[in-house]
Design a binder for these strands. Structure first.
Lengths: 233, 233
DNA sequence: TTAGCTATTAGGGAAATCCCGTAGTTTTGG
DNA sequence: CCAAAACTACGGGATTTCCCTAATAGCTAA
């Protein structure tokens, strides 16, 4: 996820806000926010319980570009506990202002990665002292990832395109050759490697493009990677 | 992850087996297995505590191709509880044989997805009755994902290439143009869209290829998608 | 002010890709 | 056994990509 994309994210989707509010009540958080992107459908989602003023401020000032909670989550497999982030200039810039809006600096952000490249982040926060946060964190740690996964599934599952996700039936040869293309080999290279004619390579690529509904081979590579049929290399 | 790839996975890496054994002791599992793939480095990993006979049987019979625990985990964000899988022909095929090797049909598989497209699965199993499994599952559910993430990080972090993972500094124009390439547009198309010369498009693509260390534009597309710089489209 | 980076543009031509169509052989699944 | 899919291969030629080389202008940070 490119953080620039977050600027274009649509306004909080109210139909899911209830879920986040329920989480806040259940786990005693003040606020929660979910941001998600589905590369296959090219869609983005946001759900936020924060008040309008903070939302506007955050967006207008492009705080997502420097927010260390987001940056860390993007590079992490596990949930990111804000209290473990360095209190550097960016952190201060975000959270000193947040305080004016009643938002504290204790929270956590849970990255969620799905099988088709979907990516989401669930952030939850509570304005409290360190000891309370430590206790709250321990109480919710068991549930936060399943909860995040649940929200993510719900949001992604609300997209028609995801439901339509049809796994194309590439032959083994087609996959193999497309993988070599992704590795930077030319058709002639691949022909030499596989001891076949370059015209045969061309035929397989054409077939693969058709099955992937791709106009070009580069597009086919991209789609196949997006569907985990082949891998970057 | 293409399940065919698992056939080529190297033998269990003994230097990490201790971790899995520790997990088995701590959480009272009989066996554990981790399989991971790092697309950027093109590497695969396996760590297994199962006995040699089952390992050989599993591999020789290509059971990974039909193992529903693997298939489900690949399509899931959350951990997959085996007891919730349908007892269909494939399940029976795997687990009726497993029983002969002392492996029960209660377990779970945790998918782990990293920020650079790394993917892993941690499977743990216990030969017991349903009630015991239900209790054990409840006991470990809080810790299983962090543990899986920990193992995954360790295995992936053991690769020199991962440490070298340098996020290339593509300019905005380079990203934009590469995204259009991934959308199937030709250089001339892109020039028309952006109201620039196709020779300019060509220059940006060359620069992008260089920054991504790619031999071809298709390879550059693949790598950029793998790094989430651009998206399939 | 200077250096580095980005964005823009072009010439000439070789190499590669792709289009469109065709066809034989082998393998696979019902 | 049979039909469909996969694998193999080709002709002819249009189109696109990419190589190599070169240059200017604007912006930003030191």
């Amino acid at each position: 996820m490119d953080l620039h994309s977050l600027h274009d994210i649509p306004h909080s989707e109210e139909r899911f806000t209830g879920y986040l509010k329920e989480i806040c009540e259940t786990f005693e958080f003040d606020d929660a926010a979910y941001a998600g992107i589905n590369p296959v459908g090219g869609t983005m989602h946001a759900i936020v319980t924060y008040n309008e003023d903070w939302q506007n401020h955050y967006q207008e000032n492009g705080l997502h570009l420097i927010d260390p909670t987001l940056h860390s989550a993007m590079r992490s497999v596990a949930p990111v506990d804000w209290s473990r982030l360095g209190r550097n200039a960016n952190f201060r810039k975000v959270f000193d202002t947040a305080r004016d809006f009643g938002i504290g600096e204790f929270g956590m952000t849970v990255p969620i990665r799905g099988p088709y490249g979907e990516f989401g982040m669930l952030s939850v926060t509570r304005d409290c002292d360190a000891a309370t946060w430590k206790k709250l964190k321990r109480n919710v740690i068991a549930d936060i990832q399943p909860v995040a996964a649940h929200i993510h599934d719900h949001v992604m599952g609300s997209e028609p395109l995801t439901k339509f996700l049809h796994h194309p039936n590439l032959s083994r040869r087609e996959k193999e050759i497309l993988q070599w293309i992704a590795a930077g080999k030319s058709q002639q290279d691949i022909a030499d490697i596989l001891c076949i004619s370059s015209r045969t390579v061309e035929v397989h690529l054409r077939s693969a493009r058709q099955k992937l509904f791709a106009l070009t081979t580069a597009q086919a590579v991209g789609r196949a990677i997006g569907m985990s049929i082949i891998y970057p290399s």
